[in-house]
Design a protein around this nucleic acid. Structure first.
Lengths: 332, 332
DNA sequence: GACGCGTCTACAAGGGTTTGCATTAATAAC
DNA sequence: GTTATTAATGCAAACCCTTGTAGACGCGTC
């Protein structure tokens, strides 16, 4: 059995409260005593029992991280970044996944409520009302979602979408499709708004196809429709869909970028390993997760601290976009 | 503040022990009382405080999952599978990552010791002695590693490597390279042993290049050496290296599979999105993680239950392997 | 009417910590 | 030499729950 604070106290010949203070408030204990305690603790392999500490302080030194899909290359780096940031602060990360199901999401938040110090909700699918409601039970930081004055970390996808549109328009494209993501995705709505705005007042014809599953298969399944639609460029909700789309277009003998240009979103690692390398809008996912962890820890008890951070996105031009095919030039 | 067992007891007009038993041993509580308690608990939104329960029962209902790299497409599906399996059992998953550093690994296990009910160590890099030692402090299930009689889940990479070799030999290849993984990787050693055994007694010349970082860049960095070595086929430690290698060969104008065949290991999702689609040995990572969770939960207190499970691997033939180039036929 | 038995509920200890307060000892101020 | 003042430590309650044991109650049996 692992050593407890009692064992250490006994072996050192002091009261347990002195041992406790040696760790939680070192300045209150005499240096000599402190050293003796530390030495004994070291020798006995003593570690404070977090459950006991949590019981009394109400702090668990654990953060809950809720994502739609743990293995998704969009979320995985967020978990990674959050874990590393949390560990720096002596915190742990409890992960759970919702499968894009708002009900599961809610249940998870509630289940976490008494068990973690705060919850990081990544691209949540719950309704605003529900998020608002559960935020009374436990400190929450949102990523990729804005709900009233709850703390959140956003990525500036609007500006990313605008850059992407400008890039395509600059290449001469006039018939462009936007393949949206899930209905309840805040990001998807933002991209749509921004892309639509970028097309407005120009001679660009923007076709919005939405909602779609944000997966490789989702993109794959749209290839035929895209190929038959006469568009010369496509902006997808994320890189996975772009990869699937390119795959599907390939098997229809539609060449990317010669026939159709494709722009993704996120800049997941795979974007540079597919052929053609994917032009995409880089999202600062890791940095968002780190920021969210810090916000959660600073939040303390005033759980409505109104920090709302927006991080920059950046268009990464690779090989999946090119000039509009000559046959299509000017016929939009 | 969230409702406690006291609030529920008071509101129902029974003793807290009755409330407790309503949840932990319902058959000991009169049905009518039980229903009243449940109703009040529901109304008050009561959830047992896990910390308090952990303090007394010693069970945290949490499993620690330690991997080298959370975002790695080899490990991410394992985390995913473990989380889903754990949730089915009303358990949670605490993740942490080691960056392939044995010291971090050890520290993490120790930090988890009193905080989780068991630890799942995925492809650990610690020494056998150390694993053996920490296994006294906390129940451990190993994945991809065998240490004395500790419970573990293995993937039959040896048979996978043999299949891969046979596949290549069947295609006429006689000069084959094996790009190994990290030095401390059990998997890497197993593959090497098996591949060497498959080559023995034949006219196949197997060149082992090891150790290497098990990453895309690791593979990329070996491209030149491979291209200049005269081998016609390569077996890599994992798919990431294979992807990197193919990338590197591509920029050296070496064509896969026409000039050189490549076989990966793991069958990560990306394997089917790269071009050419990667021939690889599929590892049952998800199933391994699920099995490990179940083993951990069944382990109970006899932490040396000697279950050692081996899961089957399977060679998936795609487009990165082909017949030996005619110029090379028979000159091995 | 005393007793035993089974069913249910109440009581209270205990798990490992933190922390406000009391106590002690040592030092400083007068 | 007495009294404040400070520093260091001890004491004990509290955190929320589980669980072994004892008690209350109703019923049937002799």
């Amino acid at each position: 059995m692992r050593a407890t604070i009692n064992d250490v106290a006994q072996a050192t010949g002091v009261h347990i409260s002195t041992v406790s203070r040696t760790f939680s408030a070192p300045h209150l204990v005499n240096e000599e005593t402190r050293n003796r305690v530390l030495e004994v603790a070291e020798r006995l392999g003593y570690r404070p029992n977090r459950a006991a500490r949590a019981l009394i302080t109400g702090k668990t030194y654990t953060i809950g991280l809720i994502v739609a899909d743990i293995a998704n290359p969009f979320f995985a780096p967020m978990i990674k970044a959050a874990e590393s940031q949390a560990r720096m602060r002596d915190y742990h990360i409890l992960v759970a996944e919702t499968d894009e199901d708002p009900a599961v999401e809610e249940e998870l938040v509630r289940a976490f409520a008494k068990q973690v110090d705060g919850v990081q909700l990544c691209s949540p699918r719950m309704s605003n009302e529900l998020i608002e409601k559960v935020s009374h039970d436990i400190p929450i930081v949102l990523i990729n979602r804005m709900v009233s004055d709850l703390p959140c970390v956003l990525m500036d996808v609007a500006s990313g979408a605008r850059s992407a549109m400008e890039h395509l328009i600059g290449l001469g494209h006039r018939k462009i499709a936007l393949l949206g993501g899930p209905r309840s995705s805040w990001t998807s709505r933002e991209i749509r708004k921004s892309a639509t705005a970028a097309a407005r007042g120009t001679d660009v014809e923007l076709t919005v196809v939405s909602p779609n599953p944000p997966t490789v298969d989702g993109g794959l399944g749209l290839a035929e429709q895209v190929a038959g639609s006469g568009v010369t460029a496509v902006l997808t909700h994320n890189d996975l869909m772009a990869v699937g789309l390119m795959e599907g277009l390939g098997s229809l003998d539609v060449c990317v970028p010669d026939d159709i240009s494709v722009v993704g979103f996120d800049d997941i690692e795979m974007a540079q390993w597919v052929r053609p390398k994917l032009t995409t809008v880089a999202n600062p996912t890791s940095s968002a997760a780190r920021t969210a962890v810090d916000m959660l820890l600073q939040l303390g008890d005033d759980r409505r601290a109104t920090a709302q951070v927006t991080l920059r996105t950046e268009l990464i031009v690779r090989d999946s976009t090119g000039p509009v095919p000559s046959g299509s030039r000017g016929d939009g």
